[in-house]
């Protein structure tokens, strides 16, 4: 099932083209890593797909009204905003807002989604803590749990693992891969190409004002693409421990 279809999507801001002519389909079961250098338009592509920034072309998510869209796709922005000192559990429960009729408290089913999201991100012991007093990495995990609690077929996250420790980076990637395995889809922008190569089923490489490559990690992380878009070379092997990718040095 196609969860996201982008047709000839282009965005220009203040007269400057951020990217042009992006076509892509994301199917259920895919964990898509959105990669590319700083300023390549990863965030803007996701925001345009969600209708948060004006774009030309078409995103299938915009065929639905705002309320219905919130039940189809969850969005975790890069800015980790937590405005008020609410408890971790209350913050994660905000993910249920699109599913609740106005003024209705959380049902047992809603609570079950909140509990599952807290467990998935290893936050069971923190549920009573005040979210604003947590460390940056802990806050990121709480915000991922919030997006998980929204329980949508598609999850889009902007640099979700930035600032997490290695164990939490790996387990977050495993959570996302698990969502894909159970028939949902995840699109996450990532800068750690090693983790992207190991966990994602597909990579979309942005650069040069558009989508440069789109496919399985092995087909996207070619020496040529890496040199052209990232200006690095890298060591990439299939090992008994799975695919291992390590950028090596900057090339002119």
């Amino acid at each position: 099932m196609t969860l996201l279809a982008l047709d000839d999507l282009s965005v220009s801001l203040r007269g400057r083209d951020i990217f042009t002519g992006v076509n892509a389909r994301v199917e259920a079961g895919e964990f898509v890593g959105l990669i590319g250098p700083n300023g390549a338009g990863k965030t803007t592509l996701m925001r345009a797909a969600l209708g948060l920034v004006a774009a030309r072309g078409h995103s299938s998510l915009l065929d639905h009204g705002a309320a219905e869209r919130a039940r189809l796709v969850a969005w975790m922005p890069q800015a980790r905003d937590i405005a008020w000192p609410v408890s971790v559990e209350a913050l994660v429960a905000l993910g249920r807002v699109p599913h609740l009729p106005v003024g209705r408290p959380l049902s047992a089913r809603d609570q079950a989604h909140v509990d599952a999201a807290l467990s998935a991100m290893g936050l069971d012991d923190m549920r009573r803590r005040t979210a604003t007093r947590l460390s940056g990495g802990e806050q990121a995990r709480v915000l991922i749990a919030r997006a998980l609690a929204q329980d949508t077929p598609l999850l889009m996250a902007d640099e979700p693992i930035a600032g997490l420790d290695p164990a939490n980076q790996i387990s977050t990637m495993q959570v996302f891969a698990g969502l894909a395995a159970e028939g949902r889809a995840v699109i996450a922008s990532l800068h750690d190409l090693g983790l992207a190569a190991r966990h994602c089923t597909r990579l979309m490489l942005m650069g040069e004002g558009g989508l440069v490559a789109d496919g399985p990690p092995g087909d996207v992380l070619t020496p040529d693409n890496l040199a052209r878009v990232f200006h690095v070379n890298a060591w990439f092997e299939r090992t008994p421990h799975g695919p291992v990718f390590q950028p090596l040095e900057v090339i002119g």
Binding site: A67, P77, A79, R146
Partner: peptide, 15 residues
């Protein structure tokens, strides 16, 4: 409540 997460997240939650 949704705005606790910022304007972008709130908008994506149907606000």
């Amino acid at each position: 409540d949704a705005l606790t997460l910022g304007e972008d997240a709130a908008a994506s939650m149907g606000v």
